[in-house]
Amino acid sequence: MIGAIIGDIVGSIYEFDNVKTTNFPLFSRESSYTDDSIMTVAIADWLLHGGELAKIMQGYGRKYPCPMGSYGGRFGLWLKDLNPQPYNSWGNGSAMRVSAVGCFFDSLEKTLDVAEESAAITHNHPEGIRGAQATAAAIFLARTGKSKDDIRKYIVDNFGYNLNRTCDDIRPDYEFDESCQGTVPEAIIAFLDSQSFEDAIRLAVSLGGDSDTLACITGGIAEAFYRYEIPHFFVEKAGEVLHKDLWKIIEEFRERKLALFMSQR
């Protein structure tokens, strides 16, 4: 999950000032987290402690304003609604917040079920659900030792995304796209093209478009695949930037997963 947070922070300053190159500063004084990180942590809190997902997400949305701007229009209204209902969105918000689901469960079937649940609370359009499930599945497969070819084949076969492209193919004509169908495949391709965690983040941001969300999705998958290869400086920087209360949930999530891993050895 920390990989998704790092991706969001790195991409935050390039969302409306795209760079079409992998050669750019990863962090600056303006780097911050966005709604991607806030809702990612909200989902992690729900997985750790249970409760009603809509109320948890609304609580986070009301308590933690976006440092880099406001929440999206429909989602911003949903956060304030006394009786929040799904609004048939196919936006990439369902995929940007799902990384904790991909990290949490021991079976792919459970991962897919909970990814759908986490999406459908707002993004109950089939494309919104597909984006969340594909992202969570890629993370699950990456952390359970599957190869990039295995991950590519599973996503293509089960979700129908075109992953037979490269970042170099996508980059020249790619523009801002808030949809799952225009974000998730590209984010997965950035991971598939990469040689390291840092390379994955750089490739995602270099595509342009919705840079923070692209890098958030890519970062979640890349963390699961490259595991212990995230530079410590990146984690330190994320800890400095993220609100301390949000960081506490991330640490609790990591400790829970570590304790579970040790108990199964």
Rank of each mutant, 00 (worst) to 15 (best):
L79H: 01
G102D: 04
V101I: 15
K153H: 03
Y87W: 11
F140L: 12
A138M: 06
I151E: 07
W78Y: 03
H123Y: 08
N124V: 07
F159D: 10
G93V: 13
Y161C: 04
A136H: 04
T122L: 00
R130D: 05
G131V: 05
I155L: 15
G73I: 14
P126V: 01
V98I: 15
L82S: 09
N83E: 00
H125W: 04
F105R: 06
V156Q: 15
A134I: 03
K153S: 08
E127G: 02
A120T: 11
T135Q: 14
T144D: 11
S89K: 08
N158T: 07
H125P: 01
H123G: 07
E109C: 04
G102R: 01
K110I: 11
K146C: 13
S107F: 13
E116F: 06
A142T: 13
L79F: 01
Y71S: 04
P86F: 11
C103P: 05
M96P: 08
N124Y: 05
A115H: 06
W90M: 11
F159W: 10
V156F: 07
R74N: 14
T122P: 02
D113M: 09
D81Y: 00
G128Q: 02
Y71M: 05
D106R: 03
S99P: 06
A136L: 07
L77F: 00
E117P: 06
E127W: 05
E109N: 11
G91L: 10
G93D: 11
K80L: 06
K153P: 01
K146N: 13
A119V: 10
R152M: 02
Q133M: 15
G76A: 02
S94R: 04
Q133E: 15
L77P: 00
L108G: 05
N158M: 08
E109A: 14
P86E: 09
G72C: 00
G145Y: 12
V98M: 02
D106H: 03
E109R: 12
K146H: 14
N92C: 12
F140R: 08
L77K: 07
D113N: 10
G93C: 12
L108A: 07
G73C: 10
V156M: 15
D149K: 13
A132Q: 07
K146Q: 13
K110S: 10
N88G: 02
N83T: 00
N92H: 03
G131Y: 04
D113Y: 09
D150E: 15
E117Y: 08
Q133I: 09
E116Q: 14
V114A: 04
F75T: 02
G76H: 01
F140S: 13
Q133Y: 08
Q85H: 07
P126L: 01
V98Y: 02
S89W: 08
N158R: 11
S147W: 05
K80A: 02
H125Q: 05
T144N: 15
V114T: 11
A132M: 09
A138P: 09
G72Q: 00
P86M: 11
R97T: 09
G73Y: 14
A100S: 15
I151W: 04
H123P: 04
